[in-house]
Design a protein around this nucleic acid. Structure first.
Lengths: 111, 111
DNA sequence: TGAAGTAATAACACTTTTGTTAGTAATGTT
DNA sequence: AACATTACTAACAAAAGTGTTATTACTTCA
């Protein structure tokens, strides 16, 4: 069997998925959007205590670029921008549940 | 409903599980050990091209400390140290599969 | 006129993660 | 006597991730 290159390791489906899950804040954003559906930027900020503007904007842009989050802007004053999960974003739910379930199981197992 | 604190966000089951999955190399280590069962340190090193000694040692220690990996040392010369997955480590397989499956699906969906 | 509100952006600093290079101990093999 | 082998360790450097602070534009409300 052929050796896997570093490229293949890092661009494998696992890491592709991890791109939308890893880091300090992505889970919180996905969790809130899964729970609430559609939220304005400010509502997201309030729903995720302690996140900085910088990180919230950065992660939203990242998730939008990946097609996981939808962004809709309205020409109001003050501005209105709504964020929600795309269809593919919503499909992350069972993955997130699988990860969380293991975490619960692990917490019990190790005490 | 009470507000979640930052602590609760970061020590939640999701992030607890992510501790054993995230980063550049943990997946490769888990993947190889799931596939091959038990491997000596040097065999792991050879099975994961481009990983540095530093990172391999560091991640193995981390995973061992989390109870995910077992380490067994023999008093030979040169040293023999065998690594394998613990029972709870093996239980990560369906989680890893779930993440990878989403990655495959995503790759098809976005082209 | 001035303050309040929303959705950002930019510059800089700090922290965490990862990489690089060099080296160690012990013994069997050449 | 020198060398290869294994499983590491330590010091330092670079890169990536995250945090802090200040600032913007526009309009409505006080």
């Amino acid at each position: 069997m052929r050796e896997k290159t570093l490229e293949e390791y890092l661009n494998c489906p696992f890491h592709l998925a991890m791109n939308t899950l890893e880091g300090k804040w992505k889970f919180a954003i996905l969790y809130v959007l899964l729970d609430k559906g559609t939220l304005r930027y400010k509502e997201l900020e309030r729903a995720i205590p302690d996140i900085s503007t910088r990180m919230l904007v950065k992660e939203l842009k990242h998730l939008e670029a990946k097609g996981v989050v939808n962004r809709k802007a309205y020409a109001t004053v003050p501005p209105t921008v709504e964020y929600s999960l795309s269809t593919i974003g919503k499909s992350l739910k069972p993955v997130i549940d699988s990860i969380s379930d293991w975490g619960k199981m692990y917490a019990k197992a190790v005490g």
